[in-house]
Design a protein around this nucleic acid. Structure first.
Lengths: 260, 260
DNA sequence: CAGTGGTCTAGACCACACT
DNA sequence: GTGTGGTCTAGACCACTGC
């Protein structure tokens, strides 16, 4: 950095009305710079970023300052540190993070113990955003979206029904066919084909009855209670990039959450 | 510390069979020592712990090492740092952390916008642990437990029904009457009266139908889908100290979760 | 003002992975 | 051995709080 000695962009006009003097530590500025390089694709998912010493030289700060910046990026799962090897851009494509955002686990056994999930696309098409979808994705009503419906099965048992909406613009080139033929982890596809990384998500969870044909797709009785999970996934700058409405069977699985 | 230069308790006999050489950084050892003092009650919830410099002197390490230890304790919400004032033992008794473990929020408005919750104890008595309760609380079947049932209402609407089990031994002196008469946050009572701090919790969430009288207590129709939330709360050393089975209405509220 | 936590530096050394 | 992240130190200075 060298520049900006400890104070960041405090437009003097602002200070009169804001309570906070907008002090920003050096390591936060470095963090922002690294974030920029990540977003721009200078370092791609799975790749190593430059070593701490290299970055310290590049930004003209000490290694400790770079370190603290990377610490925070690692804490939010944007990068992964590996001692002796380097710091790597996090990815959804790796085996052990396949279902980073999926918190449904089998009642007995460990998360992956049922073997791989079977993904079946039921429906996939272009559509126009309804009011609620538009609000969730920060679009306008009627904007083009991609819509998909799929079923995830574990050990042959249909367990999850998902409706997915994506804004069409950032995923230009993604056809319904491409999605329908793809059977790997969806977030990995987004990363490799569209340079779109899902960084965090918010979920709203409710209990609902299985109706509107969902009972048939999950092969359960009409009216069975289902866990309804509405997820909005965000990319850089907290821009919403995916809306997902999931319906989970909870007779053999449960949603697991840890509270600190 | 001074002692134990970078290696902690590696009983040579152990090393033959364990894959990990059991290396423990100094700051982890300091963290463990601070943890001990917290658990022993040397510093009570709400109080300040000694300053970083004081602790550094006490343990004969540098301030930076103490700092890193406290950083981790703060990250797991065991202590709270306040610049210019000190580091304080976290507590459930403060206003803004009243419902630290409750993730049910109203569909519209902010978490606290409905005003204070009304707590009504429906039932409260001593009992013997059934097999499943015993397993959850690491007891034996038949061990003495305290059992309570209560309803939480927001803005006069009954929203949450909770069954709570506590091991009787650690809560010796807690009578059914005391619990029934108490109308504040339960975890605060545990802290002040029994020096029992709930540090983290695990939840298993399912969708279930309102039956077995739960529909009456929540004043909803029989068969309405409810969110079933089984929570086990842990104190120091990951010892389970409370089992709570909650039934949440999700027509006006939802369970909110953030994923990173 | 003194005391607290927060930032930043420079340098030394350790643990780990690859070659 | 070389290079990476991880630990630890000592000292300086900054920002916030309360006396």
């Amino acid at each position: 950095m060298a520049a900006i000695p400890s104070f960041a962009s405090p437009s003097p006009a602002d200070e009169s009305n804001t309570a906070t003097p907008a002090f920003s530590p050096l390591y936060q500025q470095i963090k922002a710079l690294i974030l920029q390089s990540l977003q721009s694709g200078e370092w791609k998912p799975g790749e190593a970023i430059p070593s701490e010493m290299d970055l310290a030289t590049r930004y003209r700060v000490s290694q400790g300052t770079v370190r603290k910046a990377i610490d925070e990026l690692a804490a939010s799962n944007l990068v992964v540190r590996r001692q002796g090897k380097g710091t790597f851009v996090a990815t959804h494509a790796e085996q052990h993070v396949q279902f980073r955002f999926l918190k449904l686990v089998p009642d007995s056994g460990t998360p992956g113990s049922e073997g791989p999930a079977q993904r079946e696309i039921i429906d996939c098409r272009r559509a126009r955003a309804t009011a609620d979808v538009a609000r969730a994705l920060a679009l306008r009503s009627g904007d083009a979206v991609l819509q998909a419906r799929r079923v995830l099965s574990f050990a042959g048992v249909p367990t999850i029904l998902e409706d997915i909406w994506l804004p069409a613009a950032p995923f230009k080139g993604l056809t319904a066919e491409r999605l329908a033929d793809y059977h790997g982890p969806m977030y990995a596809l987004f990363e490799t084909e569209f340079n779109m990384r899902m960084l965090r998500a918010e979920e709203k969870i409710r209990a609902e009855s299985a109706i509107d044909g969902r009972e048939q797709l999950l092969k359960i009785e009409r009216g069975t209670p289902l866990l309804s999970v509405e997820r909005i996934a965000y990319t850089y700058q907290n821009v919403p990039m995916e809306l997902r409405r999931g319906y989970y069977r909870t007779d053999t699985h449960h949603y697991h959450n840890s509270l600190n």
